[in-house]
């Protein structure tokens, strides 16, 4: 059955290649390894991440889609549910609420939704979490915007 994950990934890749491009997400698999993906997502408008392009690294295991892909931010991001140093993402659908109904692209969309809706409970970034939990959205937004301006790309990468 381990072949099935490759089959599924090829289907996902084919769909991405044949569908009209997503305005907010660009993604592709490593040429030599269909289990290694890179994705770029555009920070949602009206959030401190607007205008930034964020890189994600996706690693897909043999048992995908029965188990979730491992996804993390490569670009540093200041957000309660993203570990600032490791890029680890705390998102239910990538853990206990994962189901094969999600695709890699769908999971990227869920990460975009997470950027727009930070969750203060069980934060991976304590500083960001404290600001959001205390209701100090102004402080959170200004720090997040600062990092966005400094660390996120402004353009899609040339080779994507």
């Amino acid at each position: 059955m381990s072949l099935t994950s490759a089959k599924r990934l090829r289907k996902e890749m084919h769909k991405l290649q044949t569908s009209p491009p997503d305005e907010d997400i660009r993604m592709s698999a490593d040429e030599d390894d269909i289990r290694q993906w890179r994705a770029y997502i555009r920070g949602p408008p009206d959030t401190p991440f607007a205008g930034g392009i964020y890189e994600l690294k996706i690693t897909v295991g043999q048992q995908y889609p029965m188990v979730p892909p491992c996804m993390r931010f490569v670009t540093k991001v200041f957000h309660p549910n993203v570990h600032f140093n490791t890029g680890e993402i705390c998102l239910n659908i990538l853990k206990k609420d994962w189901s094969p109904a999600w695709s890699l692209q769908g999971a990227c969309r869920a990460i975009l939704a997470l950027l727009a809706h930070p969750e203060a409970d069980s934060p991976l970034n304590c500083d960001a979490g404290n600001m959001v939990r205390a209701g100090d959205m102004r402080a959170f937004r200004s720090v997040a915007r600062l990092y966005n301006e400094e660390l996120a790309s402004k353009d899609w990468p040339a080779d994507f």
């Binding site: 979730p68 491992c70 998102l91 239910n92 853990k95 206990k96 409970d121 069980s122």
Partner: peptide, 16 residues
């Protein structure tokens, strides 16, 4: 997105 504490489903070893 609710909290992440109640981990009932088996995430992958890679996740852990």
């Amino acid at each position: 997105m609710s909290e992440e504490k109640d981990t009932t489903a088996p995430p992958t070893a890679a996740d852990a």
